[in-house]
């Protein structure tokens, strides 16, 4: 299954589709020609509806077990796209399917939300209980899971996010990173196939950011399909694929190395390069011939040490 042709999406396909090489079979999430419009207006003041097209013809395949990073300016449509994937929003036109289930089919809505979990920016808005383990149990309880099974799921979820020690604590006494890990555990306890993270580190301190990114890495290793929306470019360099959105459309799509090679386009989109990519490009301008495609500080440092020896 190849992605849609560039003409459909306005996307500049950077190189080959790595997903074809690495991930065989039916894509887990299939977004087809998705348009989503926010409307507001006429009810109170008689003025015509104001229509804001937040997603404007997006097609995207997310293979099972892959890690897709989505970046783009505030208002570029990233979060709206994400909310269409787990049926919080339904398409104005086009379609979204999760493991073959169409989000517009009422019969699938709850199953889709169980399979595709979401983690948001502010952990304080996602925690509901007075004790950490009760909070993690909240989701499976609502699914009607048997008590023994709930206990097992909560235990496993807390291990997955490394919060077992704090299981009896009140969430409001935790640090930002710990709260966010509890929110993730609550999603993990639903045994989802995929988790969409919508700027999960935006409000966190450096340690909290490291903790959450470590947890995302572990979930990925366990085979969970990851979609990460972020403004921190350095969080995307380990992804299988980076998708850049602008004005509701996908404008760049490829591996991190492919996408971040297009420095000028990325800057003109109001974005930045990952630290190591920007450094390497500026070093090249100073006559130090750092090869392209080094994405991490460790890789650039390694090259600098090696080439100087």
């Amino acid at each position: 299954m190849s992605g849609p042709p560039a003409a459909d999406t306005g996307a500049v396909r950077a190189g080959c589709d790595r997903q074809d090489v690495n991930f065989k079979g039916q894509p887990y999430i299939e977004v087809r020609d998705l348009v989503f419009e926010y409307r507001r207006g006429s009810d109170t003041d008689g003025e015509p509806d104001v229509v804001m097209r937040a997603v404007d013809g997006v097609s995207l395949d997310v293979p099972r077990g892959s890690f897709t990073a989505i970046i783009g300016r505030n208002g570029s449509g990233k979060s709206t796209l994400a909310k269409n994937v787990n049926a919080l929003f339904l398409p104005t036109s086009g379609s979204v399917t999760v493991d073959g289930m169409d989000t517009r089919d009422d019969a699938f809505v709850w199953e889709i939300r169980r399979r595709v979990g979401m983690v948001f920016q502010n952990p304080d808005n996602q925690l509901v209980s007075a004790v950490v383990e009760d909070d993690v149990a909240f989701g499976p309880e609502n699914l009607g899971v048997a008590p023994d099974e709930i206990r097992e799921r909560v235990r496993a979820a807390l291990i997955a996010v490394d919060m077992t020690e704090q299981r009896k604590m009140a969430p409001h006494l935790l640090s930002g990173g710990q709260k966010q890990r509890v929110a993730i555990a609550g999603v993990v306890a639903m045994r989802p196939d995929a988790i969409i993270f919508d700027e999960p580190t935006a409000m966190l301190d450096p340690e909290g950011r490291r903790e959450v990114m470590d947890v995302i890495g572990r979930l990925r290793a366990d085979g969970v399909t990851i979609v990460l929306i972020t403004h921190f470019m350095d969080e995307t360099v380990d992804a299988d694929r980076v998708v850049i959105m602008d004005r509701g459309r996908i404008v760049l799509d490829g591996t991190p190395a492919e996408v971040f090679r297009r420095a000028d386009e990325i800057e003109s989109l109001g974005l930045r390069l990952p630290f190591a990519v920007e450094l390497a490009s500026r070093l090249r301008r100073r006559g130090i011939d750092v090869p392209a495609g080094l994405l991490t500080p460790e890789a650039v440092a390694g090259w600098l040490r090696g080439s100087a020896a």
């Binding site: 301190d205 450096p206 490291r210 630290f275 450094l279 500080p297 440092a301």
Partner: peptide, 29 residues
């Protein structure tokens, strides 16, 4: 104490440069 270094300072450390004096990418380069 749960903090870190600016990325340029961190990179300077990795390279064995005098990290404290490196505030930003200009200094690092």
């Amino acid at each position: 104490i749960g903090l870190g270094l600016p990325p340029s300072t961190e990179m300077a450390r990795m390279l064995g440069l005098a990290a404290g004096a490196i505030r930003d990418m200009d200094d690092l380069i």
